[in-house]
Design a protein around this nucleic acid. Structure first.
Lengths: 155, 155
DNA sequence: AGTGAAATAGGCAGAGC
DNA sequence: GCTCTGCCTATTTCACT
């Protein structure tokens, strides 16, 4: 499948939709100086080709219920490709793991864990994370407050 | 302003919308065993009261252009409330700062920085971050790959 | 707070440039 | 690949329980 590069109109659509997905095709068409049909067809194409992964609602999590956020840094005891891949796959299964990054340098992985409270986080570390193979040292960074959380990238 | 707690129907709406914001009111109504009007009214209320912050499109960023992600840990040289607040406010202005967390323990802040490449990140550190007052030590964790990135919370 | 129906606006497809 | 026309489905409001 040959996927062509994005032109300025495509980027314009993505830029606007990642800030507000409820813009109508009419509104997008006006801002991008096109009529409805090409905008509609481009959005359809951008979805099919996977540039747009999903349309979601962003919630004010702290307002709904107080949450505890932690970023554990994890050292593995082996660094073979098989071990790294297995760790990623297994840890991604846990629903409390929101994000998983493979890092350079003196740490192997960083996770973002979101749970109701510190007790639940303690349970996660002891019962779920510690049960995985090849886990070495774990150092947890705990979040006191969150000052910014954007999802929109500049294209 | 008195904001009442969320009932099960509200939580159901939020749970579904944070996974797929393009569900129609009809579809939500069926799944939650209500008719269209109450679902519509509740969504409107949840937006007005700020439980829903935004509806956005999530993009496959790596597919659109290769990106460089880093998590700098930042120590400040002073920890007065004024300094902490000033740091948060100033750093949140930078568009490349996607997230900003105030942490416990041996680090003060962690940022998530997204930029086109490592060169741009180097410039960010030298020209933008270093120009802020009260910056002490900065230790950067660089991302090799990202295995998971969810936004939906379990309510 | 809920249902059901009626009005309006937006998504989506076709013909032609 | 774009504009224009038009249908059809979803959103939004209203009268009522």
């Amino acid at each position: 499948m040959n996927i062509p590069a994005l032109d300025e109109t495509d980027k314009g659509i993505l830029n606007l939709l990642q800030k507000d997905a409820h813009l109508t095709i009419d509104q997008l068409a006006k801002q991008l100086k096109k009529s409805k049909t090409p905008i509609f067809q481009r959005i359809k194409r951008l979805k099919e080709q996977g540039y747009i992964k999903a349309f979601v609602a962003l919630l004010d999590q702290q307002k709904i219920s107080p949450l505890f956020i932690a970023f554990p840094h994890i050292h593995l005891t082996s660094h073979s490709e098989a071990v790294l891949r297995q760790f990623q796959d297994q840890v991604s299964q846990f629903p409390e793991v929101m994000e998983c990054y493979h890092l350079t340098g003196d740490v192997d992985f960083m996770l973002k864990i979101v749970l109701p409270d510190m007790q639940a986080y303690n349970n996660f570390l002891r019962e779920k994370l510690a049960s995985l193979p090849n886990i070495g040292n774990v150092h947890s960074y705990l979040v006191l407050s969150q000052a910014k959380h954007d999802t929109a990238l500049i294209l």
